[in-house]
Design a protein around this nucleic acid. Structure first.
Lengths: 228, 228
DNA sequence: CGTAGGGTTGAGGTTAATCAAGTATGGTGG
DNA sequence: CCACCATACTTGATTAACCTCAACCCTACG
């Protein structure tokens, strides 16, 4: 299975289009790992000794409150990396990570990787760009959670998902929520009950049509008009 | 005034303890700027052509909702840098920045600085560490806003402020809120009314004593016990 | 003094969480 | 293939947090 490793690395923005030689060096220090559904990948506060690249499957990154409520920060899919930040500064993970399904990931251990960074300004620059993107995402998440109601957050999420999927935004467009509604509710900073009711409300208003995880956009204009 | 510039740079973690030669190079491309109270430093969506280091004064970084409500993301003080992330990836600022009082800041223009980064792995590593710290802060902010009630957020803020001020946490300790209560309310993701009521509640319970911007901790144990 | 900005207080309304119960759904073993 | 179980999801009723609106106070500063 070591043969798919370079392939995984090549598909992550961090290492895409890297000279073969650099890629080989990264591959040399990378460790393939597998997790089953619901397996914990790391827990908040645990010693952080590296970061991850997803090859197959989905991972949720989340915070837990003392009374057990969870806030999903990110949903990570194939090609994406996560926990990069932990290899600089601070030796512990700031959140939990759990496999949402069977996952093949690649682990990049801290020390060998930072050594590599020091000699590879190209990778270092990409690393900074990646950290910057995470920062932007978190900034948007804060804005979303604190400044918008659940309906607006949901609509924005649908809009963003259509965008990343490359689906043109028009009536009849279909979107597949790739995760359970419970997880999605938590990502949107709410609970399953409220999430369910919000979907129903939008459906009753004729703006969307819900069938399982399929969302069909019926009135794109009025649906997305609440976003500025 | 150019003489204080190296001093400002030396006081920011990004450039502290840098070899004099590196520091000189940074200073060469740095541009001192001044802002009066309430001046906008940049607005969300504006083209981002560099980042900032604060020499004197305080800056608030915030998001605005369409109906005018604001969420303060960060309060930046002397020695701190902000908007570093914008010089990689994404050409626009993800939030607004405004001077809370008269401010002397240093502006580091994007292009010359990235050129410098490519030749200076040492600075690049620090830059990544700095980005990582911001990321951690944002992660904590999300958790705080979405998983805790206003009282818990306020108490945590007090705890954090005591920590950064180096004040030992014990009964009788006094803390000065360096910003207006209105700004602080927004930083905590609430409104002045709720903030005021929450302070009053803690005072009525005998846990703190409020006099203007001075907060005296009266019962540290019971006050901070709600934080796990 | 008089005004303005920040701060406080009270009443009322709204959003969304909680609690409780019931209905799909999907995977597993018989 | 079906029965069963666990899990996910939905729906309704109730509650709690906190936002909004409105009025008022207080202090600083011209």
């Amino acid at each position: 299975m070591a043969s798919i490793l370079p392939e995984v690395l090549r598909n992550t923005p961090l290492f895409a289009n890297l000279p073969p030689e650099d890629l080989r060096r990264v591959a040399e220090i990378a460790l393939p790992r597998h997790y089953e559904k619901k397996d914990s990948i790391f827990r908040e506060g645990e010693r952080a000794d590296g970061f991850y690249v997803v090859g197959v499957g989905r991972v949720k990154i989340f915070k837990l409150s003392e009374n057990g409520k969870e806030q999903v920060l990110h949903l990570i899919g194939p090609g994406q990396s996560f926990a990069e930040a932990t290899i600089f500064e601070g030796g512990t993970f700031p959140a939990h990570a759990e496999a949402l399904e069977g996952c093949d990931v690649v682990f990049l251990p801290k020390r060998p990787f930072t050594d590599l960074l020091e000699k590879n300004p190209r990778i270092a620059l990409r690393m900074m760009a990646s950290l910057s993107r995470w920062l932007k995402r978190m900034t948007d998440l804060v804005e979303s959670i604190s400044l918008r109601d659940v309906e607006a957050r949901l609509v924005r999420y649908l809009s963003d998902e259509l965008a990343v999927g490359g689906t043109p935004i028009r009536d009849g467009a279909v979107l597949d929520l790739n995760v359970s509604k419970t997880v999605l509710a938590s990502r949107l900073g709410t609970v399953p009950e409220t999430f369910s009711r919000t979907l129903k409300k939008l459906q009753d208003e004729g703006k969307i049509r819900v069938k399982g995880k399929q969302i069909r956009i019926m009135k794109a204009d009025s649906l997305f008009s609440i976003l500025d």
